[in-house]
Design a binder for these strands. Sequence first.
DNA 1: CTATTTAAGTACCGTCTGGTACATTAAAAC
DNA 2: GTTTTAATGTACCAGACGGTACTTAAATAG
Lengths: 198, 198
Amino acid sequence: MKTKKKRGRPRTFEREQTVALAMANYWLEGPQALSVNEFCRRVGLPKPSLYREFGGEDGLLAAALDHYWESVLAPIAERLGPDRSFDESTEALLDFATGERDTPDGCLLAKSRGTRNRLGPTAGARVDEMSRALLDTYEAIVRRGQERGVVRRDVTCEFAGRYLDTQITTALRQAAAGEDPSEVRAQAELAFAALLPS
Amino acid sequence: MKTKKKRGRPRTFEREQTVALAMANYWLEGPQALSVNEFCRRVGLPKPSLYREFGGEDGLLAAALDHYWESVLAPIAERLGPDRSFDESTEALLDFATGERDTPDGCLLAKSRGTRNRLGPTAGARVDEMSRALLDTYEAIVRRGQERGVVRRDVTCEFAGRYLDTQITTALRQAAAGEDPSEVRAQAELAFAALLPS
DNA sequence: CTATTTAAGTACCGTCTGGTACATTAAAAC
DNA sequence: GTTTTAATGTACCAGACGGTACTTAAATAG
């Protein structure tokens, strides 16, 4: 299909770049702390352009979350695949939570989950989907660990998956709050140790 | 000393009652979610009275936090005294975090800590003091547990105290988010198990 | 050329926020 | 009585918020 020329004024709006900027800004400050006004001011974008493209604050955050999933979380989740051991997987998760990075501290999804009930319907639904996908990943990690005998079997993998989720979320929150990464990591490792066979 | 009569119009403002209402409302909704306007509207209090008594939002929250400490946390902390075993202490903490109550879910101090950097100077200082006092309590609980051999000795009691604080804060946050109390309790108990001797 | 279509961007809307000026009221002091 | 003091409460402030009407600009269609 040929891209037939459109009729009106040509678009100068760069959607991808705007979404990336939205992700970076929401990531840095948290969804509740960044206003539409402030974001438009920062990136030099007229508000009507934003509203035409994203429908409003809810749509902008949803687009930012989608981009965050595609560019940050999905690649990490993939690398937690079945060829990795339980220890390697938890190690990788802790690296993400507390490692040195050029990106903001913490996790955009974790910050969004922290204010879940103050999100719009679209962004809220995205958060729920992604949380569900993460939980499934954690559950699979635990299940493989149980099969290989490195995770205790007297808890269900669903429960242990939720426990893993809770502990990682906690570590991400601490990292975002600026706590000492080595302290955060040590506490998380202690929490993970509760999953080992007794 | 005799209470000599004051000169101007007599005061009808009830400070204690207002502080109690402020505590209840901040507890229920979180410090960031309750505006001065909304609070005054709810309790039928003119804003100038509030500003004369508390100086502003910061002072009101600080007063509410003081009241919370005196009426809620200090009585609990006292009951965690040296006559209690480690298990009894953690049990009592979990009861506070997840038990049935007539008060709001979660903990006003925990909610305030979650938004520490958006607090005013006075309320922020109160939060820091109370957090410090809690940490000391947790550390003492761990130390007694170590002395009695029910807590592993290969971690410092400072570190284990911070770990306890992290886990209790997490449980309180989950409870405030409306998660199933038995699930919250089970996860916290698993996390506490990491402190037992191996 | 003119008409039409589409995007860009100024300038505004109503609502809420934390905070306050000021007129009013009720007591004690004289 | 009048004056003085201190509390009350209406009515306001400037600024920020999410969102939008409308003018202007830039392209194609005829």
